[in-house]
Write a protein that binds this DNA or RNA. Structure first.
Length: 262
DNA sequence: TTCCATGTTCCGCA
DNA sequence: TTGCGGAACATGGA
């Protein structure tokens, strides 16, 4: 589920398990996933170096291997990181396999191959090149600034939350969760919100992101009152007597409670 | 078989 | 000109 909280968990995984280990080879690089670099170039780029530090911005994960050299990972809809078990055969979904000097392996996997692997010299240049808005979690330090960021958009409130140019990191699942907990209909116009509602939306967004990260993006289970564990048409709403419905908003399958989200 | 799926990008339209 | 909504993309599972 690679939205901001999921990518944050991947970052913490790299930080605890793969920092400062020498890379001795980068293989199995899938050319469908590589952007602006060949498998051979990527291998040369990484071999002999190690991850010095990592940084997450929106749904992107940056692993620094030199002063001005970063590996950039984007996970698409189905990408994730894991280590290789001993003696495990490499499956066809592997998009990148990093071998470390100590014998451990890091695997980037992507079933639907919608992820992207690239390199950059600075995070800032990459972010501005993509036109990404401020990172949603970083905006949480300033509620007023966050609320201000939500002003001036015409489309639906759900589309605004998912718009990476307005706010980087939130996708389909967490935008539904935020609006579910706030009790707002996903098709409500973003320009219909008043100042107070924008502040509430900002606060609710931060609450959802931080809680999801605290729950290890679902590995520790979801809060009982959340939409996530019952993201299915016909499920009973834990807040009212309503039922969960599925509609399409901005071309994405959207789940909400027709009872308390109006 | 058909529909749906957590991602981004591109195109047409207002 | 700008921003929004929907289709397309690749692949697998229900």
């Amino acid at each position: 589920m690679p939205e901001l909280p999921d990518v944050q968990i991947f970052k913490e995984y790299l930080d605890t398990s793969f920092l400062d280990r020498k890379i001795v080879g980068a293989g199995k690089a899938d050319t469908q996933l590589l952007q602006g670099i060949s498998p051979e170039e990527l291998n040369r780029f990484l071999t002999g170096k190690s991850f010095i530090s990592t940084r997450r911005y929106g749904k992107y994960l940056f692993a620094r291997v030199a002063e001005d050299e970063f590996l950039v990972l984007h996970f698409g809809m189905t990408g994730f990181l894991r280590s290789l078990r001993k003696g495990e055969k490499i499956g066809s979904h592997v998009g990148l396999l990093l071998q470390f000097e100590d014998g451990s392996h890091l695997v980037y996997e992507s079933r639907r191959k919608l992820g992207r692997i690239s390199v950059t010299d600075t995070v800032e240049r990459f972010v501005s090149g993509r036109g990404l808005g401020p990172d949603a979690l970083e905006l949480c330090v300033d509620g007023a600034a966050f609320a201000e960021r939500l002003r001036g958009h015409r489309g639906s409130i759900k589309a605004l939350l998912m718009n990476q140019k307005a706010l980087a990191g939130i996708g389909n699942v967490y935008s539904d969760e935020i609006l579910f907990l706030m009790g707002v209909h996903p098709k409500k116009g973003a320009d219909e919100l008043n100042n107070k509602e924008r502040r509430t939306l900002a606060a609710k967004t931060c609450h959802v992101l931080k809680t999801a990260i605290g729950k290890h993006a679902g590995a520790d289970g979801w809060p009982q009152k959340w939409l996530l564990p019952r993201r299915k048409a016909g499920s009973a709403c834990p807040h009212c007597s309503g039922k969960i419905s599925r509609i399409t908003v901005s071309g994405r399958g959207t789940y909400f409670c027709s009872g308390h989200q109006s």
